[in-house]
Amino acid sequence: MNVFRLLGDMSHLLAILILLLKMWKTRSCAGISGKTQILFALVFTTRYLDLFSSFISIYNTTMKLFFIASSYFTIFLMYSKFKATYDSNHDSFRMEFLVVPVGGLAFLVNHEFLPLEILWTFSIYLESVAILPQLFMVSKTGEAETITSHYLFALGSYRLLYIFNWVYRYYFDGFFDLIAVVAGCVQTILYCDFFYLYITKVLKGKKLSLPA
């Protein structure tokens, strides 16, 4: 564990808590893409299948359990409790356009052709594009609530911090995982446009609105 990875995990945790807080306080999931949340639940489910077969640390296990539980709870809130406020018209990104190619790639490019390893690879590739329905929804609605932009900033920062973690681990532990690094870079690059808008607008107190 290093400071970058810890900060990254905390940023990820913060993002999830911000999202749950937003939905709980406003009793609404307006502006949030349910498809992205479904993809995140799929990411955690396929990545943490080794939850009971391999123990790394208490921290690792509790975080995995929290991520899985919170992702399904978020879906429950969006598609059941606050269903009336779910904006399905603007959440129109086709998830199959992501899941199918990513599934195929996981079969072709992986570290080892074993079920758990292919599912882990699928989860890494899927996570790198899972935010697309959410970014697509923000671009369609042309704006996002300030709390939603904080959620996206924390979520984007988590994988950016993981990139620093991989640089650190490469130089200090000699650890290098090409699949995770490439997917992590793609994931972070997808946020660049948003990061620019967040820093130039939201941090100056303006509302996040995309140029129409």
Partner: peptide, 10 residues
């Protein structure tokens, strides 16, 4: 290639 036998990151 050294297979990453266990993924220790979240």
């Amino acid at each position: 290639e050294d297979v990453l036998d266990i993924h220790d990151e979240l």
